[in-house]
Design a protein around this nucleic acid. Sequence first.
DNA 1: AATGAACTTGCAGCCACTGCAAGTTTGTTG
DNA 2: CAACAAACTTGCAGTGGCTGCAAGTTCATT
Lengths: 205, 205
Amino acid sequence: MTPIDQDAPLGRRDLRKQQTRAALTGAALRLCSLRGFDQVTVDDISGEAGVSSRTFFNYFASKEDAVLGDHLVEVDAMRARLAVLLPTMPVLEAIRRAVLLPVAAMEADRDHWFLRMEIIKHSPQLLPRLVLSNAEAERATTEQIAAHLGVDPATHVYPALVVATTSAAFRVAATGWMAAAGARSLGALVDRAFTALAAGLPDPD
Amino acid sequence: MTPIDQDAPLGRRDLRKQQTRAALTGAALRLCSLRGFDQVTVDDISGEAGVSSRTFFNYFASKEDAVLGDHLVEVDAMRARLAVLLPTMPVLEAIRRAVLLPVAAMEADRDHWFLRMEIIKHSPQLLPRLVLSNAEAERATTEQIAAHLGVDPATHVYPALVVATTSAAFRVAATGWMAAAGARSLGALVDRAFTALAAGLPDPD
DNA sequence: AATGAACTTGCAGCCACTGCAAGTTTGTTG
DNA sequence: CAACAAACTTGCAGTGGCTGCAAGTTCATT
């Protein structure tokens, strides 16, 4: 019996898939940060990664997906943490702590994130797509919080509101982090944003 | 001498342009709400509006633009109002009042907005594009507020934070409004969201 | 070794979108 | 009114993202 490791489902086939996927995202980030998103074709990326362009679309639904990546894993982890925290503290505080998971993931993957930042800076059309990738997660989180509070998310604004605003705060912090090229820690920036949120966004001194 | 009306720059040429543009957005909204965004081609829309597909692209940069519309006018008006209000009250309060302009515009254009909502519900890819259309405006507003406060928007998070979160709050209110098919007034929903924001997003009773 | 599933690839094709070079309409000027 | 220029529409040809299909190839299983 082989040990089951969820991080590496073993088999040289799956290994190869991981490699190909990594090669494609790597090529996409490298080429696009160099030439700009619109000046790179899927053929370029596939060629650089050593596969056909048709294969590219077996891995990613769109060129944008290859550049932006999917962050389902981290978001799922955050929701799990949230489920644990919610019963013991106010909603905003629970979110503030749960968001530390994505923060850590981003700081661990900083090289890729800085490239993404570089690309998005020159192709702003990509920014909303990055938001979209979180849209489904936001919906699920909204329902989670609504269930916790025992309210109907369709009639009560609070769950959607707290999710949307914290999400926006996180995005602001992340943008500042990338713009500063990581000079300040993402965690500190997020913390500052949440503090201002919890205080009701008063004018700064 | 003909009266100068800035709403209608007169000349039968400009009139015709307005008509064509309106016909295109009308056709786009109608067809897409009926069949779904992906099931409608630019040819379909252009045909319905009685122009060539090439002409379509003289009016809109993309199929999405025709459906989502541009809201530059309202946003500019809001920023002008904001410039007047900022010196006399806290930032959050100024935004809360300035946002009444877009609110009024949306309520006046409710038929189109409900169609958009219907379309977006079935094609969620469009939602982020709607956000993008505001991205540039958000950036400008951020700088406006930073200038008012006398801080550097690159190092200080507050301006970007207050703009992003209020924008998110507005979006939540608007979504709720469209989901309820206008049963509740948009203004009331926006007001409730801003009240919660100003209170620091405490758990609801 | 054989079988079938998974993966890659070329091909043909749809559609969004663009530049260019007409042709047509409209506002203006002598 | 005639003539000219600017604005607008359109067809055409072409690029590139993206998909379904029908091979081929590679790998895991028995």
